[in-house]
Structures are given as C-alpha cells and as structure tokens.
C-alpha cells in the first residue's frame, strides 16, 4: 500500500500547491498551469500508450469533451464550478466505456487512427451544435454570471496537487495486482493473457481512466482561459503535445513525461523569445521526436537514467 515517504510527498505537494497559488504572480501562474496541464495530459497518454501498449491518436477528443461538459454544466446549473470539475471526469470516464467497447474492435494502428476519426467527429458535431455556441464557442459563466476573482489561483493549486497526487497514485497503482498486470501487459500481451490477466478488461479500465484524467485536465485548462471553441478544444495540437512530451521524455516511465514537458515548454518559451514562429517550433519538436525515436525508442529518460545513476554512484563512492 501507500508508503510513508509517498504520504510525505503528497503533503509537501499540497503545501507547495497552496503556497504557490497564494504567492506566485498571476502571469507566471498561467504558464505554470499550462505546464502542469500538459504534464497531466502527457501522463494520461503515457499510461495508455506506454504502459498498456494502446496508442491513441484521438485523446484530444477527451480534452474537448471535458472542457465542453464543464462549461455546459457550470453555465446551466447552480453547481459550484469546482464541484463540476470533479464531476466531469466521472461523466467522461463513463462515456468512455461504450466508446472503448466499440473502438477495441480495431487493433493497434487501426485503433490509434480510429480514435482520431472519433475526435474529428466530435469536433465537427460540436461546431454544428448551436446549443454549445457552434463554431464561435462559449464563454464560462458559472451559474450565469462572469467568473470573478482569479481562477488561475485555485486552478494552479488543483493542477499542482493533482500532478503530485497522480504520480504518487500511479506508483501505488503499479504495485497493486492490477498495476503489476499492466506492467506485464507492456512487456508481453500474449504472456500476460496466458498468465490469467484479463487483457481486454484491463485495456478498457485504462482507456476509461485516461479518458477521465484527460477530460479533467482539459476542463482545468479551459477554466483559466474562460473561453472555448471547438477548433481550439478538439485541436490536434493537444494530441501532438501529449505524444511529443511522452516520446521525447520517456514512454512507459513516470519521470519521462515530466522531463518531456520541461523540454517542450522550455523550447517553446526560448524559441518564442528568440522570435521564431510557431511553425518553426513544431518543425524543431517534430525533428527532435523523430531523432529521439530513432536513437532511443523508449525516450530520453530511460536512456539517460542509468547513466545518471551510474555517475551518481561513482561520484558518491569517490567521495567516500
């Protein structure tokens, strides 16, 4: 079960989240919120692709679904905004069950691109839905009034604590029976099946969990931007970001997506500051992803971690 050290990390995460929300300046908070959301999204994609071996190219669908569900419920009911944010992943997670049951009839590459088609369908249906504002989208007005205060402060607190809690939860999860089964699945699906793991059920569970997590992160992101359109919420750039972060950082590791997020956002801020365009940024990131895939197909962290550890042990030894 959960270890003392992990409880301590959780507590420290909570403190940091609250202190950060109270004292960091608002502009930086927006950036940090985005960083944390991207980390959460990438970790969800990683859980599905890196751990259960199911690659989806349509998880932007859940970003959009989560955000739209949140906006719609918040705007049309009296339920408090932050409670809606907790409801959204439950709803989307449930919705993912029938979707998963259909999509799992497609295997591997077919599943991946099939999910992309689903995301396109949802984007275009949303654009057609006048009750969701059509192509011009919606503004967040919880209970019919403009959001007051600084939503980025609670959003940051939730995202920061959520990121820490997610990593701890995943560590704990990977120690449970289901988690060990997931790891077995990553190594060898056929072997896992013959060892009594219900592969289909496990795939479905992970699919729904990642759908729920992705929708929550999406909802959180759009709370800070207050405004949503189908073109933005369902855009494929969400997908590209999740994938590049995971692939560059390290597929199937918990640290990889953190490293990947730092690299992607760091590169973006640096390139924007140096006057490069968005297109040029994506070209560089695409090239980075391809190069990492060819040289270290499981990503930078799994390739570097043993060396870092080795360097660390030799340096501590030499000191001793």
């Amino acid at each position: 079960m959960i270890r003392i050290s992990e409880l301590l990390v959780l507590a420290a995460g909570l403190m940091a989240a609250i202190l950060g929300a109270l004292f960091i300046d608002s502009g930086l908070l927006f950036l940090l919120c985005e960083v944390l959301v991207i980390f959460l999204l990438a970790q969800m994609w990683n859980l599905l692709a890196g751990f259960s071996g199911q690659m989806s190219l349509g998880h932007q669908a859940f970003v959009g679904l989560g955000a739209y569900t949140l906006f719609y419920i918040a705007n049309h009911t009296a339920i408090p905004l932050w409670l809606v944010l907790a409801l959204v992943p439950c709803l989307i997670g449930l919705l993912a069950i029938p979707l998963g049951l259909v999509m799992f009839h497609l295997k591997q590459a077919y599943f991946a691109v099939g999910m992309w088609v689903v995301a396109e369908i949802l984007m275009q249906l949303t654009a057609k839905a006048q009750w969701l504002g059509g192509t011009s989208g919606m503004t967040l007005r919880p209970g019919g009034t403009m959001l007051s205060g600084e939503p980025e402060r609670p959003a940051f607190a939730i995202a920061a604590f959520g990121a820490v809690a997610l990593v701890v939860a995943l560590r704990v999860f990977l120690r449970t029976r289901l988690g060990l089964a997931t790891l077995a699945l990553r190594e060898n699906e056929a072997a896992a099946a013959s060892a009594g793991v219900d592969v289909k059920r496990l795939h479905l569970i992970l699919f729904c969990l990642t759908a729920a997590g992705t929708s929550a992160a999406g909802g959180l992101y759009y709370i800070t931007s207050l405004y949503i359109t189908p073109q933005d919420a369902f855009q494929i750039n969400w997908m590209i970001t999740m994938m590049f972060v995971t692939v560059i950082g390290g597929l199937g590791t918990l640290t990889g997506p953190a490293l990947g997020t730092i690299i992607l956002i760091g590169a973006r801020e640096a390139m924007t500051a140096a006057g490069y365009s968005g297109g040029q940024y994506w070209i560089v990131m695409g090239a980075a992803a391809v190069i990492v895939l060819l040289l270290a197909p499981r990503g930078l962290w799994p390739a570097l971690a043993p060396r870092i550890r080795a360097a660390f042990t030799t340096s501590t030894k030499s000191k001793a």
Binding site: Q108, A109, M243, V247, Q280, I283, G286, V290
Partner: peptide, 18 residues
C-alpha cells in the same frame, strides 16, 4: 511496431509545418 508509426507522425508534423 509503435515506433515506426510514431516516427511517421513526427514526420507528418514536420512536413505540415514546413
């Protein structure tokens, strides 16, 4: 086989933005 597919995705992003 996922690696090759991810590589083509990376190439697609490069080509599109180029």
């Amino acid at each position: 086989p996922m690696v090759a597919m991810l590589v083509t995705f990376g190439l697609a992003v490069i080509l599109r933005n180029a």
